[in-house]
Simulated assay, not measured.
Amino acid sequence: MNGHAEPLLHDLEEPLGFAADASFDGVVCALVYEHVRNRVQLLGELRRVLRPGGWILASTTHPTADWRHFGGSYFSHDWRDLPLGDSKLSIHYQRLPSETFLGELLAAGFVLEQLIEPRPTADLREIDEAAYNRLRQAPSFLAVKLKRP
């Protein structure tokens, strides 16, 4: 390994044709999973390209954060557009209850190793005390580490 990464732009709705079977040690899916419509295909492809014992780190917006923001049912699977500040841009994604998020990953044959609901570090208190206090009271993210058997 030469310590350098090669950036690659790829549509996760498509198979990972650039990758051979069992060619990766790990995969990071940081705040991307809830944007993919064909998650069954994606998870099959991730399982295919991971070596046995390989890992996935996946994070998503915590379902309770979506529930607090959008209201309605916590168990909603609707697609939403979250505006980005005062701009005309928004983020399009699907609301996923915890049982859906974890259930899909486990059904694809991965084994859960760790689940965390990250809390802010003390440094945030110095930058934005209101945000720090809010994030200490209610989770905003959900992160999991899974293993390919």
Rank of each mutant, 00 (worst) to 15 (best):
M1R: 10
G3C: 06
L8N: 04
L9A: 14
L9N: 01
L9Q: 12
D11Y: 03
A20M: 06
A22M: 05
A22T: 09
G26W: 06
V27Y: 01
C29G: 13
V32I: 09
Y33G: 01
Y33F: 15
Y33W: 09
E34L: 03
H35A: 11
R37H: 14
Q41W: 02
Q41E: 12
E45V: 10
L46I: 13
R47Y: 15
R48S: 06
R51L: 08
P52H: 10
G53M: 11
G54V: 08
W67Y: 09
W67L: 01
R68T: 06
H69S: 01
F70M: 04
G71K: 04
G72Q: 03
G72D: 07
Y74D: 03
F75M: 02
D78H: 15
W79N: 00
R80A: 13
D81H: 15
D81G: 13
L82H: 13
L82R: 09
L82D: 11
G85N: 10
S87W: 08
K88I: 00
S90D: 07
S90A: 15
P97N: 04
E99L: 04
E99P: 01
E99C: 11
G103S: 05
G103F: 04
L106P: 02
A107Q: 11
F110S: 04
E113C: 14
I116V: 15
E117Q: 12
R119V: 12
A122M: 07
L124G: 05
E129N: 03
A131Q: 10
A131T: 09
N133D: 15
R134K: 10
R134E: 13
L135I: 00
R136H: 00
A138Y: 11
A138V: 09
S140E: 12
S140K: 07
L146G: 05
R148G: 05
R148F: 13
